[in-house]
Structure formats: C-alpha cells, structure tokens
Amino acid sequence: MGAKFLNPDGMSKPTGYTHVVEVSGTGRTIYIAGQLGLRADGSLGEDFRTQAEQAFKNLETAMAAVGGGLEHIVKVTYFLVDIGYLPVMREIRNHHFTKGPLPASTAVAITALALPSAVFEVEAIAFIPS
C-alpha cells in the first residue's frame, strides 16, 4: 500500500526524477495548485533563485497543512520562463526533496506566468497512505 517508484529497464536512467510512480491502497490524494515564489505577505522574490526557493517552501507548507511532507509527493510539474534556469531549479529541488525517491516530474519552458514578474511555478500531486 502506498506509492511505488519505478525506473523500468529499457528506459533511460533518470536524473532527478522517477519515470513511473504507482499509487495503490487507501489513503488521500492531494492536489496542490501551482505555487509561485510568493511570500506570506504576497510579495514576490526578486530573482529566479529566490522565487524557486520560496515556491518549494510553499509546497512544504501546503503538505504540512494536510499532515504530510514532500516525501508524499508523487508528481510535480515545473514551469520556467527560461529553461536555462533548470540547473538552479534542480539544485534547489535536491535541497528540499531529501527523503525517499524523487517524484515523477515534468519541466516546461513557458513564455509567461500569471504574475508578470514571476519566473517559476511548481504544482504537485501527493498521496498520503491511511
């Protein structure tokens, strides 16, 4: 019961994510809306690193609100306004995702986010076993 993380033979070796996550059994599925680098006061970080760090902290806060942690996240989608930020995003992600295998993930380069000065957003799906 719970989440099973798989990297099947015959697929490339992933760097920083898991190819397949199977969820079974009873528990709660949690959907976390896209998180920008917004602080609690509504202000936005000045640069990519600051925004990404805050967005991951927001994920941690969201998971704590439902009695979970980042280790319960099974899928994340990253949105970057410049794909050149990917190495910095991976560094920050690795600082936060320290328990268990990394979730399945997708990184998408986009032209803009909901706030004009936002440069990073992350959304997540989590499963917390009963």
Rank of each mutant, 00 (worst) to 15 (best):
G2R: 02
A3Y: 04
K4N: 15
F5L: 13
N7Y: 07
P8F: 01
P8K: 00
P14N: 12
H19L: 04
H19F: 04
H19I: 14
V20C: 10
T26Y: 11
T26K: 09
T26W: 03
R28Y: 14
T29G: 10
I30K: 06
I30F: 10
I32K: 00
Q35R: 14
L38Y: 10
R39W: 14
A40W: 09
D41V: 07
D41G: 03
S43H: 10
G45V: 01
E46T: 08
F48S: 04
Q51I: 11
E53A: 08
E53P: 12
Q54T: 01
A55W: 01
F56T: 14
K57P: 11
K57C: 14
N58G: 06
N58A: 01
E60T: 09
M63W: 00
V66A: 13
G68Y: 03
E71W: 11
H72T: 05
H72Q: 10
I73Q: 03
I73H: 06
I73D: 00
Y78D: 11
L80I: 04
L80Y: 04
L80F: 03
V81S: 15
Y85W: 04
E91W: 02
I92E: 02
H96K: 05
K99Q: 14
L102P: 05
P103Y: 09
T106L: 10
A109T: 06
I110V: 12
I110T: 14
A114V: 15
A114P: 07
A114M: 01
P116V: 13
V119P: 01
F120Y: 03
F120I: 06
